[in-house]
Amino acid sequence: MKPVPPLSVADLTVAYDRVPAVHHLTGSFAPGSLTAIIGPNGAGKSTLLKAIAGLVPLSEGRIDGANGNIAYLPQLAEIDRSFPITVIDAVSLGLWREVGLFRAITGEHVKRARAALTAVGLGGFEGRQVGALSAGQLQRALFARLMLQDAGLILLDEPFAAVDERTSADLMQLVEGWHREGRTVIAVLHDLERVRESFPETLLMAREPVAWGATANVLTPENLRRARYVSDAWGDAA
């Protein structure tokens, strides 16, 4: 893994059809930090991740430190599950930055892919078709792919939304492992219990940042009430 630069956003605004989804956000994610982004629906959480991943144009402001070394797990994967591909091949897509168009997938790569599958609890699933996986198993496979990407900055958009309790607990352990390895991890979540339990930092947003810092200081009743209020006010204006 390459060293992780600090990630900072300065006066960031991202708008769809001139309606801002993220509005004048300023702040930074320290290298190796583990941050939860929470907020009501339509608060711009996913948009912020997409902006960091470079998938949406910025209307205003800047993002620094987000170049190349990023792994991004979207909320709704656009995966075609009827596509004929085996689990190990799908997971090996995570090697794209290393192998690109032409370089061979070596024995070493295959070993890493198998190790990643074992780590997510899918050992022995290498030769299965992706279409035969359950929703939880598919999410595990996507986590294995994230592992192979070996990125310094990992962006997760509601990674536990469609999976059962046991799967989300297993996947959370992987996230904590990445945190220990010094990777910067940013995850959009709705489960405040989980945030309190496992995420040291939290960004509470409602288009504008409501609070950003240590989780205990952010998740106060007062802040949560304000987030709802700001969101509703925007809803009326838009």
Partner: peptide, 15 residues
């Protein structure tokens, strides 16, 4: 193959 299977991944990794 990646574009058929997971177009969002291709966009995010190769732009």
């Amino acid at each position: 193959v990646i574009e058929c299977f997971d177009p969002a991944f291709l966009r995010a990794t190769t732009g």
